[in-house]
Simulated scan of single mutants.
Amino acid sequence: MKLINKSISCPHCGHNQHIEIDTSGNDQEYYQDCKICCNPIHFRTQLDRVHQKLTVFVDSDDEQYY
């Protein structure tokens, strides 16, 4: 298992926070509560192993932030 640390901004309250993403699997989609406001954050991750690039999409289900 390989974990990568990313900094994201909560789509609900706007606070920055650090998250850990497990890159040992394929693309992922999951929800995690904001550490500040406790609202659910929708995460989608796409891992491009050829170019060694991880893209993280964060939204509140009604808008998408990149």
Rank of each mutant, 00 (worst) to 15 (best):
residue 47 L to R: 00
residue 12 H to L: 04
residue 7 S to V: 14
residue 65 Y to L: 15
residue 20 E to I: 00
residue 12 H to K: 08
residue 9 S to V: 13
residue 50 V to R: 13
residue 18 H to S: 12
residue 12 H to S: 09
residue 24 S to A: 11
residue 29 E to A: 12
residue 60 S to Y: 08
residue 20 E to K: 15
residue 64 Q to D: 11
residue 50 V to S: 09
residue 32 Q to K: 13
residue 12 H to Y: 14
residue 66 Y to I: 12
residue 23 T to H: 04
residue 47 L to M: 08
residue 54 L to M: 02
residue 57 F to I: 05
residue 59 D to A: 05
residue 36 I to W: 06
residue 27 D to N: 15
residue 66 Y to Q: 14
residue 29 E to D: 11
residue 4 I to Q: 11
residue 46 Q to L: 07
residue 19 I to Y: 03
residue 6 K to R: 15
residue 2 K to D: 07
residue 38 C to Y: 09
residue 33 D to V: 08
residue 12 H to F: 11
residue 36 I to K: 09
residue 28 Q to R: 12
residue 33 D to W: 04
residue 17 Q to V: 04
residue 13 C to L: 10
residue 62 D to L: 09
residue 20 E to M: 08
residue 13 C to Y: 12
residue 53 K to E: 07
residue 49 R to Y: 08
residue 33 D to L: 08
residue 5 N to M: 06
residue 33 D to Q: 06
residue 15 H to N: 15
residue 3 L to T: 06
residue 65 Y to G: 11
residue 21 I to F: 06
residue 47 L to Q: 01
residue 47 L to D: 00
residue 16 N to D: 12
residue 26 N to S: 11
residue 49 R to M: 07
residue 49 R to N: 13
residue 21 I to S: 02
residue 43 F to W: 03
residue 13 C to I: 10
residue 63 E to W: 07
residue 9 S to E: 13
residue 65 Y to E: 12
residue 12 H to V: 04
residue 16 N to G: 10
residue 27 D to T: 05
residue 16 N to R: 10
residue 49 R to H: 11
residue 46 Q to F: 10
residue 22 D to N: 15
residue 3 L to S: 03
residue 54 L to H: 00
residue 60 S to T: 09
residue 42 H to I: 01
residue 30 Y to D: 05
residue 20 E to F: 06
residue 54 L to D: 00
residue 61 D to K: 14
residue 60 S to C: 15
residue 14 G to Y: 06
residue 1 M to F: 05
residue 5 N to H: 12
residue 2 K to V: 06
